[in-house]
Computed example of a mutant assay.
Amino acid sequence: MSHNPKADASSNTQKNPDDWVSGDEPMTGAQRSYLKTLSEQAHQPDVYAEDLTKADASKRIDELKQALDLE
């Protein structure tokens, strides 16, 4: 039986953003858009910043999703 990485509970989607190889790269366009939307919905515009890394954007998105009960 071969290993299915998509069924692995420790896949990249669950990996701590601080451990991402590309975490220091600028956030993606999708992250930028989603973070801006969430920060507006949460009435926390100061959470959004253009110069965030992928890892920082991911952490802020997760925090906002939790604050908005989206998880």
Rank of each mutant, 00 (worst) to 15 (best):
M1F: 03
H3S: 05
H3G: 04
H3P: 01
N4P: 01
N4L: 08
N4H: 14
P5Y: 07
K6I: 06
K6M: 09
A7W: 00
D8M: 02
D8I: 01
A9R: 08
A9G: 09
S10A: 15
N12P: 08
T13R: 06
Q14F: 08
K15C: 02
K15N: 03
N16W: 13
N16P: 08
P17D: 13
P17F: 11
P17W: 12
D18W: 14
D18V: 13
D19A: 14
D19M: 11
W20Y: 09
W20V: 11
W20S: 12
V21K: 15
V21T: 14
S22M: 02
S22K: 04
S22E: 11
G23F: 09
D24P: 03
D24W: 02
D24I: 00
D24H: 14
E25F: 07
E25N: 15
E25V: 01
E25L: 15
P26Y: 04
P26T: 02
P26R: 01
M27S: 10
M27A: 07
M27I: 07
M27K: 14
T28Q: 13
G29Q: 09
G29F: 10
G29V: 07
A30Q: 12
A30Y: 09
A30H: 11
A30I: 10
Q31N: 09
R32T: 07
R32I: 00
S33L: 03
S33R: 13
Y34P: 02
L35M: 09
K36G: 00
K36T: 02
K36W: 06
L38T: 08
L38C: 12
E40K: 08
E40M: 03
Q41C: 00
Q41I: 01
Q41R: 15
Q41K: 14
A42W: 06
A42I: 04
H43E: 05
H43W: 00
H43S: 10
Q44C: 00
P45K: 10
P45N: 10
D46E: 14
D46Q: 13
V47D: 09
Y48R: 01
Y48K: 02
Y48Q: 03
Y48F: 15
A49F: 03
A49D: 15
A49W: 01
D51T: 12
D51W: 07
D51E: 14
T53H: 10
T53C: 04
T53G: 06
K54Q: 15
K54R: 15
A55R: 10
D56C: 00
A57M: 06
A57R: 05
S58E: 11
S58H: 05
K59R: 13
K59F: 04
K59D: 06
I61R: 03
D62M: 03
D62F: 01
D62E: 09
D62A: 15
E63Q: 12
E63V: 08
E63S: 11
L64T: 01
L64K: 02
K65V: 00
Q66E: 14
D69Q: 14
D69E: 13
L70V: 13
L70R: 15
